[in-house]
Simulated scan of single mutants.
Amino acid sequence: MSKTYLITGATSPLGLALMERLLPTLAEGDLILAQGCGDLARLASLCQARPGFIRPYDADFTQPLAVRAFLSDLVDTYPAPTHIIHLPGLRPIQTAYAYFDEERFADDRAVQLDSALLLCKTFLPRMAQAGSGRVLFLTGGVPAAQMASTAIVKSSLEGLARSLAAEYASSGVTVNCIAPGPLLTEDTAGDPAAVHPEEVVPAMLFLLSEDAARINGVTLPIGGGSALR
């Protein structure tokens, strides 16, 4: 059976690292549907490496209508995803709670949580009808001080994953989360808990595989992530 990977936030360092590992394993008929926002040039080298296997989409997840248009096009054009990997998010910014930015929080919630709600409502029933599927969310570890906005959204995603995992368990669909420590960037270079995106990918590939068919509703810590729940 052909595999269709829907990767949102595909242009992030973690999304790119995942696709680098996925691409060599794809067979004829397999696809990666890769969503980014204004930064699809980051996919150019991967698209050139295996032409035809990646279908890039530019969609601004802060805009609900853009999310709906994106999902509508996927439904009209491609088979239902067999694997959903949901990685989008605004860049985390440490801010004292006294200066909590409601507008930025609303945007980050739209990008990460609201889009996940629509995505899962669109595709999980189709996965269940097919009798199998893998869904993977990026959540987070123990929240740092002055990161209330990120903590709220990530905790909500984890709650959504647990609820969906329980609802769809009998249908052959698994819904899990990965919770790495802070990913290595220029901002986190001095953080001993920072994790290279490449170090996260093996755990993602495992949870997306058939070997993980009996693992459902878990949050898997990686590096500086939180304890397994």
Rank of each mutant, 00 (worst) to 15 (best):
Phe206Ile: 04
Val200Phe: 09
Asp191Trp: 09
Asp73Glu: 13
Leu184Thr: 14
Leu164Cys: 02
Met127His: 03
Pro143Ala: 05
Gly89Arg: 01
Ala96His: 10
Phe123His: 04
Arg91Tyr: 10
Phe105Cys: 06
Gly172Gln: 00
Leu205Phe: 07
Thr185Pro: 00
Gln129Lys: 07
Ser132Pro: 09
Ala148Val: 03
Ser149Ile: 06
Asp107Pro: 10
Asp73Lys: 09
Ala98Phe: 06
Cys120Ser: 10
Phe100Lys: 02
Gln146Phe: 12
Pro64Gly: 04
Ala193Asp: 14
Ala145His: 15
Pro182Ser: 03
Arg104Ile: 03
Ala80Trp: 08
Tyr97Glu: 10
Glu103Pro: 14
Thr95Cys: 00
Ala166Gln: 14
Gly190Leu: 14
Pro125Arg: 12
Leu207Asn: 08
Ala96Ser: 13
Met127Pro: 05
Val201Phe: 06
Ala69Cys: 09
Val67Arg: 01
Ala98Ile: 07
Gly172Asp: 00
Thr188Val: 02
Ala98Thr: 05
Met147Ser: 05
Pro202Asn: 01
Ala144Ser: 14
Cys177Glu: 01
Leu205Pro: 13
Val135Glu: 15
Met204Glu: 13
Tyr168Cys: 02
Phe123Ser: 02
Val175Arg: 04
Val111His: 02
Leu157Gln: 06
Glu198Gln: 09
Leu118Asn: 15
Arg162Glu: 13
Pro88His: 08
Ala66Ile: 03
Arg162Tyr: 10
